[in-house]
Design a binder for these strands. Sequence first.
DNA 1: CCAAAAGTGTTCCGTCTACACCCATGG
DNA 2: CCATGGGTGTAGACGGAACACTTTTGG
Lengths: 225, 225
Amino acid sequence: MTTFYKEFQKVFLSVDCIIFGFDNSKLKVLIGRRQMDPGRGEWSLYGGFVAASESIEECAARTLFELTGLRNLYMRQVGAFGQVDRDPGERVISIAYYALINVKDYDEKQLKEHGVEWVDIQALPQLYSDHNEMIRKALKLMRQKLRTEPVGFRLLPSLFTLTQLQRLYEAVTGEEIDKRNFRKRIKDMDFIEKTELIDKTGSKRGAFLYRFNKRTYNEDPNFKL
Amino acid sequence: MTTFYKEFQKVFLSVDCIIFGFDNSKLKVLIGRRQMDPGRGEWSLYGGFVAASESIEECAARTLFELTGLRNLYMRQVGAFGQVDRDPGERVISIAYYALINVKDYDEKQLKEHGVEWVDIQALPQLYSDHNEMIRKALKLMRQKLRTEPVGFRLLPSLFTLTQLQRLYEAVTGEEIDKRNFRKRIKDMDFIEKTELIDKTGSKRGAFLYRFNKRTYNEDPNFKL
DNA sequence: CCAAAAGTGTTCCGTCTACACCCATGG
DNA sequence: CCATGGGTGTAGACGGAACACTTTTGG
């Protein structure tokens, strides 16, 4: 292997993950207390350094797996953050990724082990370095994505009620949605399938459970909410 | 200055620029023959390495200035590209940025000096490493941006005719637009101001020149095309 | 029996789309 | 005088927004 770029500086490369969850009609993010210097003890996103043998994306997937034990999460790049002084010690460039997870897939125990917790997106504390900015940008991209592609289901259990789905979209857009109009739109999308199963946890009467059918979606990918 | 991250690898960090221009009813990108190893002679985006004293964004602005002699260009980050083997020699992470420039502001001489030329977006050759992928992603983001924010003007002279503006939007979206409907939408946007000036270069009759008024836009920022 | 959530259609209004002809001028 | 691009209005279709009452059942 030859070195072509001797005259240029090298930098550390890290990944930070903005992990979105949805619970109790609220959109949340997983954050924790930073366990390393510099900035030990400050609120922070969960992240890690990119190893020599892995791409940035692989690093993000691995970091998410370490934290949640889940693979194949929905994950998208937010962007590169590279202010000179963003890390007080060394020059560190960080690539932010956001991920969508179903809070129920994620074990309470693991939360504690990694010292992270779900925090309402409306009530975020000040975070280490530029992590607040990362979250702002991730949120913007995630909102856009949820409006135009059927990925919101990643934040819900595989079987969900229409009320849950509506609450999710209300939390993400920050606006109330008319129930009848919402359900009318859902009916137009064949890939949101009604099952015969009923959820009784949310009401006395019970509500039908629905599921997202990816195959049906691929045949006629028309999503708009 | 302390070193906290001794145990991790460091990487080279570069910036690549996707420079969009609009000419002769076509959307174009500025590319050239790579003048350094590895990959010398291949078609490539214009780029450079990030210096120790500058942020990634500053590096992108500087690189654009070196190439075009223009400052304060409209510029947005496309994302980080970090496959392990994207550079055949060393591990190099590149952050791509796209920029919008008015082809007329850019001197023919400078094109030759830097060995770059305008290539129609429809007729791109194969480029070095992952540069084609960078352009695809940049194009997607740029299209989205032009639909929702008044930045298309950056691709036109400060005075432009409505036909020019329409051709621009047709080139960007790839679809024909109805002239009357287009002009009706323009009329609703007070910040696209008609001047008393007339351009005679495009037709015998002559066409009124318009300009984008940023102040008026800021008072009532409603843009949709 | 009542509180709490589930479920269901219609009307209206504004927006988008389709569409064709006259105008001014340089060569 | 004619070819070329500049400029203008209307009608019909469509999609989105507003809106209220009945059903079911656990406690």
